[in-house]
Design a protein around this nucleic acid. Sequence first.
DNA 1: TTGATACATTCCTATATGGGAATACGATGT
DNA 2: ACATCGTATTCCCATATAGGAATGTATCAA
Lengths: 123, 123
Amino acid sequence: MARAATTADAFNAVAEPRRRQILDLLAAGERPVNDLVALLGLAQPQVSKHLRVLRQVGLVDVRDEGRQRMYRLNGYPLKPICDWVKKYEQLWSERLDRLDEVLADLKDAEMKDTEDGADGDDE
Amino acid sequence: MARAATTADAFNAVAEPRRRQILDLLAAGERPVNDLVALLGLAQPQVSKHLRVLRQVGLVDVRDEGRQRMYRLNGYPLKPICDWVKKYEQLWSERLDRLDEVLADLKDAEMKDTEDGADGDDE
DNA sequence: TTGATACATTCCTATATGGGAATACGATGT
DNA sequence: ACATCGTATTCCCATATAGGAATGTATCAA
């Protein structure tokens, strides 16, 4: 099997940074496609394609306005993401009952502050 | 270009349901791989591969314990997701200052309740 | 040493992507 | 009818999956 479709759910749709940008722009209000094209600096077809994905997962609604198509944000499909990720929120907030982890984090932050560059990543 | 790698960031890593399940299981505490294999009902190699992705985005840490490898949750990389999605939280909570939208939603729900069957989806 | 256990990695394949380019299409203006 | 604007769709392609199967590699036991 291949990776799940981007249209499978909001998780997959929103994994693409450009689509998050689009939602962020639409958060300020309804906008026609060309507005987004200008703001994103992308080619029009790509924007239309991203919008299609967002439509298919219900994250945006469209309304015809003359020859323009006004897109509007619909945040509801984001709720499952919010619900899921919220369970973990305490892990990085001021929960100090596991002091060793906090200290490790601090040390980590310090090292990044000092030697910078090194990525510390796996593999 | 193709889709961003699953290891590109937490957004992409977590778009896969199995990986979310793994994190959910690890939320209860450290676990060796075989535990996860049993709990997920997946083949061991696939679990190892999912764990690799999670390691690469920093969502889990490993610790050697004899011949087992204990995996532990690290929620920190989820913070960007939480931060991003939280901006939209008000959209589905009790914010009634845009009554028209609420009414539209209600009407939509009613129609789905009544005529059911029809998918209402785009395309 | 031999064998088993616990994992990780590699090879394979079908499938879907995101961008670029070209084109199709409906609405509007003349 | 025709040109144009605003969008959507189609075609092409390099790339990266997720799972299945097989194999590699430590570690521990006898």
